[in-house]
């Protein structure tokens, strides 16, 4: 089972029941707008939000739980992990607060406890405990219109394609999250353009961690290569200097003999 969520923006009425349910389920304190918060409504205490789009549509924003997550690949201490059942979860006991995950996430999802003296990274964890126990996330449970539903990723993909094909006039012919950055567990079908979720840029279908793979794989070779080269150069130069010196010494010795 690959836990996944499918959000259908045509069905969302913007009631924000999912936002409230998320706060209850994860024990998140009330939040006030802060200097450090972004306009999208996500914060360390709001793990999901509804964005009011200028065209009157509502789009739910949350962690995409990528199949090959960027945050997991960049975390130097492995505080973020992709679980086998789908959710990307966070272990605050390992975290050292470098915030590389926040820089690297292509969707800009992780948020920080800026007001705390011992701050942690916060984001949606797809209600890992509930999903592991066989339940479903709080947000999909309360959605009154079925705009956001929970299920196995392959089944949800089938549903998504079916919806898009049945009503090609309503939907944009695309399932967001099917192939993007190697695929995500949180997917969208929509009647409005969702590229704003990535600041208007196309991310491509290649998983982000592939971009550092080459450089990281080269590390041992770079070290050994550099060290060997240096040792070699040192030996050659040393040898040359020795050879330059030897004839002098040799001739010097001969002179001595003559004397």
């Amino acid at each position: 089972m690959q836990a996944a969520i499918l959000t259908d923006t045509t069905k969302c009425i913007g009631c924000r029941q999912c936002v409230i349910a998320c706060k209850r389920a994860n024990n998140l304190e009330p939040d006030v707008p802060r200097r450090w918060a972004l306009e999208d409504g996500l914060s360390a205490r709001n793990w999901t939000s509804i964005e009011d789009r200028p065209d009157g549509k509502f789009v739910r924003k949350q962690c995409r739980h990528c199949l090959e997550p960027t945050c997991v690949s960049v975390c130097p201490v492995g505080a973020l992990q992709k679980t086998s059942i789908g959710p990307v979860i966070y272990d605050g006991n390992k975290c050292m607060g470098c915030r590389y995950c926040m820089m690297a996430c292509p969707y800009g999802i992780p948020r920080y406890d800026w007001d705390q003296t011992a701050p942690y990274v916060r984001k949606c964890i797809l209600c890992y405990d509930r999903v592991k126990a066989g339940g479903q996330p709080a947000c999909t449970e309360v959605c009154p219109t079925g705009a956001t539903i929970f299920g196995d990723r392959s089944e949800l993909l089938a549903i998504a394609h079916e919806r898009v094909e049945k009503a090609p006039d309503t939907y944009i012919k695309k399932v967001w999250g099917e192939h993007e950055v190697g695929g995500t567990s949180v997917m969208y079908v929509s009647d409005t353009d969702l590229t704003f979720l990535t600041q208007g840029r196309e991310l491509g279908n290649e998983p982000m961690p592939n971009r550092t793979k080459l450089a990281m794989n080269a590390v041992p070779f770079a070290f050994v290569g550099m060290a060997t080269t240096m040792a070699g150069i040192n030996w050659i130069i040393g040898r040359r200097m020795k050879l330059e010196r030897e004839p002098e010494q040799a001739s010097g010795r001969r002179e001595d003999k003559n004397a």
Partner: peptide, 22 residues
Amino acid sequence: LGLPWNIWHMVIYWNPRSPLFE
């Protein structure tokens, strides 16, 4: 660092895929 007292975690928790780890 947000949690500077955890800076030594890099010694025991490894993620060799991360450039920052390296």
